[in-house]
């Protein structure tokens, strides 16, 4: 059985003082190392803040994109994809083909790929997200 654990907090890393953010990352490094060793690890990523989110809907074959996360609606999180796209336009194009986009919506959020995050999560190279790096 695989489980997705969604990380929610009032303050995201980008809003923390530098020292707190460093300390927080260090805790993630420790935790991630631990679950890699114990065999619980499948994959993980840090997301950029909701301000960088774009939410799309497809209605009558028309794609509409809006700024911001989906959170204010009644829609429930039902799954996720991690995709590779060269920019937001390509990401919107791919996400608009996710079947649920026709009935619900798909929030597109960039994944943090800065070196500090990658290092804390134990990705040696630059591949992220699928745990195979």
């Amino acid at each position: 059985m695989k489980y997705l654990c969604l990380i929610c907090a009032e303050t995201v890393m980008e809003q923390m003082p530098e020292a707190d953010a460093e300390k927080h990352l260090e805790e993630y490094r420790e935790f991630t190392d631990g679950i890699r060793k114990s065999g619980h690890f499948v994959g993980c990523n840090r997301l950029l803040p909701p301000a960088a989110a774009t939410t799309i809907r497809v209605r009558n074959g028309k794609v509409s994109a809006t700024d911001g996360p989906y959170a204010e609606t009644k829609e429930q999180l039902g799954g996720y994809y991690v995709i590779e796209a060269k920019d937001i336009d390509e990401a919107i194009e791919v996400a608009s083909r996710i079947p649920a986009a026709k009935i619900g919506c798909v929030e597109i959020r960039p994944i943090a790929e800065d070196s500090k995050t990658l290092s804390a999560l134990g990705f040696v190279g630059l591949t992220t997200g699928d745990g195979t790096a």
């Binding site: 950029l48 803040p49 700024d67 060269k86 920019d87 937001i88 336009d89």
Partner: peptide, 10 residues
């Protein structure tokens, strides 16, 4: 401008 950068608006 931050969103253009972070979300890679082309």
């Amino acid at each position: 401008k931050a969103k253009i950068r972070d979300a890679r608006i082309p």
